[in-house]
Amino acid sequence: MFHFSNLVRSKGDPKIIATGPSSLTAADRLARGLGWFSIALGTLELLAPHRVTRALGMEGREGLVRAYGVRELLTGVMTLSVEKKAGLWSRVAGDGLDMATLLGEVRPSNPRVGTVMAALVMVGGITVLDYLAAQDVARQHDARRGRKRLYFDRSGFPKGVTAARGAAALPRPTSTPAAT
């Protein structure tokens, strides 16, 4: 199997022949997808806010869209990090803000009200995905999973703790005393 990184290996190093199951769960993969979506949307909102405001009939609110872009980038980075649970819940909160903003644009005077309605449906769908991913990630990585055991019987000292105290601080005998 060709793998780019095999190029950095020496002749005798093992190289990948076939890949097996991954430690990433389905929830982790969904979180990763949502994280990259967040980065892409955030970049668009930050760099081209006029396109967004024109499409939604909300000209003049470019500053708000840019701020939302920054928010998307921050939550995207967090969702792609090890702290993906916090990132996903931040996204759910952000989805709420997006929906509130879009609802404010559903008015008869807005010529793009149809686009706003479509955007609302899309944000609703993304919110469901964010919520499900957040729940699933929390469940998958919950420290309470599995049996709980305490290890009060694991001293590691076959002769007991009392005998172990200072045992290595004593000078070692130079020879073993002869058996009597």
Partner: peptide, 24 residues
């Protein structure tokens, strides 16, 4: 042989890889 291989952040896989060889 089988080996645990790093593919990226949080992505470890049990892959089939070629056997190591003596090279020195």
């Amino acid at each position: 042989m089988k080996a645990l291989v790093w593919h990226g952040k949080e992505d470890i896989r049990c892959d089939t890889v070629s056997d190591p060889e003596i090279e020195h």
